[in-house]
Design a protein around this nucleic acid. Structure first.
Lengths: 107, 107
DNA sequence: TTTTATTATCGTAATATTGCAATATATAAA
DNA sequence: TTTATATATTGCAATATTACGATAATAAAA
């Protein structure tokens, strides 16, 4: 019925799937890569850089923010986005744990 | 317009997004975890184990196979699924490379 | 206060995904 | 050959995602 049956899976499985889902879009990958190259603030050079409309970028930023992969700091009329390194590493650890555990049990 | 603009991104970005997309579903996570616990063959105990209809499981297996994360070996009327360990490690490396590179450049 | 610039939100169209019933296919068993 | 079992495919309904134009909200500048 078009809706994922999250009820029948455990929290870790749903959390993992959610992380993967947020990353499952090339625009969001590109945004993360671009943000990470900026020494200081970037604000919406992202729009120029990526080549998608401003509302589209804004929505992607919102999704990345939803799991705290990035943070936005308001500076006047601009917003300074940056990778949330703490969460970034945390997510990397969660994914590695999944990959390691799964391959460990493997036939 | 509901369609991801893959043309404006590079191959690596699209490849990464595709990997994440295949993993972005709790049923597929659960299937991978379950398959990895089986010493030998499992066939469609998966259906009983996961709690989704047989066609649904079959479709998820197809998507996992589409990027070679799992392999299916036909044994009589059953099919024996297993993690493709080579590809599994390859994917883990690709993801770690993404996480490491991105955090390396970070402000 | 008005204007300008930057970002967010709303509404909507196009497309994709999820899940399942019905059915097809394939192979083993009777 | 017929029957039973296991898996795959098809078609469809419900929902989610992607993208963008229009517009709102916010804050600096004039």
């Amino acid at each position: 019925m078009g809706i994922t049956k999250t009820q029948i899976f455990n929290d870790k499985q749903n959390q993992l799937a959610l992380i993967f889902k947020v990353l499952a879009n090339p625009a969001r990958i590109a945004i993360l890569q671009y943000i990470s190259t900026q020494k200081a603030c970037i604000c919406n050079d992202i729009v120029d850089e990526i080549g998608l409309a401003q509302p589209t970028i804004s929505q992607h930023l919102k999704e990345l923010k939803s799991i705290d992969l990035i943070e936005g700091e308001i500076e006047g009329k601009k917003v300074c986005y940056g990778i949330n390194l703490k969460k970034w590493k945390e997510v990397q650890d969660i994914l590695n744990s999944f990959f390691d555990k799964t391959k460990f049990n493997c036939c």
